[in-house]
Computed example of a mutant assay.
Amino acid sequence: MGERVLPRAERRRRTEEKILDAARSLFGELGYERATIRGVARRAEVDPALVMQYFGSKQELFQRSVRMAPAPDGELGPDEVVEHVLGSLGMKLELPEGSLAMLRSMLTHPEAAESARQMLGGQIGRLAEALPGEDARLRATLMTLTLLGITVGHQLLEMEELRGVRQEELARLLRPSLRALTGQDVP
């Protein structure tokens, strides 16, 4: 029997994912400025024109390749918001290549910084919807940036104090401050 031919939509999805994987890898290694469409295409083993057809620009390719898991949708209480934020801690300590590329590039490249602001802004907005009060967006920003700071310290600065600390221990120490930022009384 011959091999089953995949539907066009599935072939397209696989090619897109192959390009995104190559982009995450290259952006993670080189940062935004030094990575090129041709380099991504070479690593993905596709034609550069195909990369442009799928993504339109280097900026769009970068944005798509560094997208993190979205914040939760729907009705969440403050405790669930804290646990969602803490649940993402493991991912931040074992950072995917795309996110590492975002961290490296957002501090040195204006387009990457704008991408980071847009992505973080969306996550902050969804977290803020679950928090009470007029300053909910500010408090959601502080929660998000607390974990971003831990990520930078662990992944880029390689702070010895964060190496080897179990995720559960970090969560235990962070939980009271994050809970305070939800607007709840802290016991």
Rank of each mutant, 00 (worst) to 15 (best):
V85R: 01
L181V: 06
L162T: 12
R38G: 12
M106A: 01
Q59M: 02
D47E: 13
A140K: 13
E10Q: 12
A180K: 14
M119K: 09
P7L: 08
V152N: 07
Q118Y: 08
L142S: 10
M1W: 00
A49R: 12
G121C: 11
A128S: 10
S105D: 04
Y32C: 07
Y32Q: 06
S88Y: 01
A180C: 09
E168G: 12
R163Q: 15
D21P: 00
A101M: 10
A136W: 11
P187F: 05
K92Y: 06
S177V: 07
V152E: 08
A23S: 05
R11V: 00
D47C: 09
L162D: 04
R175Q: 05
L127W: 07
G164S: 03
P7W: 00
M91A: 02
G28F: 02
A128L: 07
L20V: 06
G121Q: 14
F55W: 05
L103H: 09
A23Y: 04
R11C: 00
A180H: 14
G90D: 15
A171P: 00
H154L: 01
L120K: 10
V51C: 05
I37Y: 04
T36R: 10
R175E: 01
A171C: 01
G133Y: 01
V51N: 01
A130L: 09
E45H: 09
R175V: 03
E114C: 00
G183D: 07
G133I: 02
T108F: 03
V46I: 08
R13L: 02
Q118F: 05
V82Q: 00
P96R: 05
A49Y: 09
M159T: 06
A71Y: 03
E161W: 14
P110N: 03
R34F: 05
R166W: 07
L6N: 03
G183S: 10
S25K: 11
E94W: 09
L50D: 03
L61N: 13
I150T: 09
G87I: 12
R117E: 02
S57R: 11
S177H: 08
R4P: 06
Q184A: 12
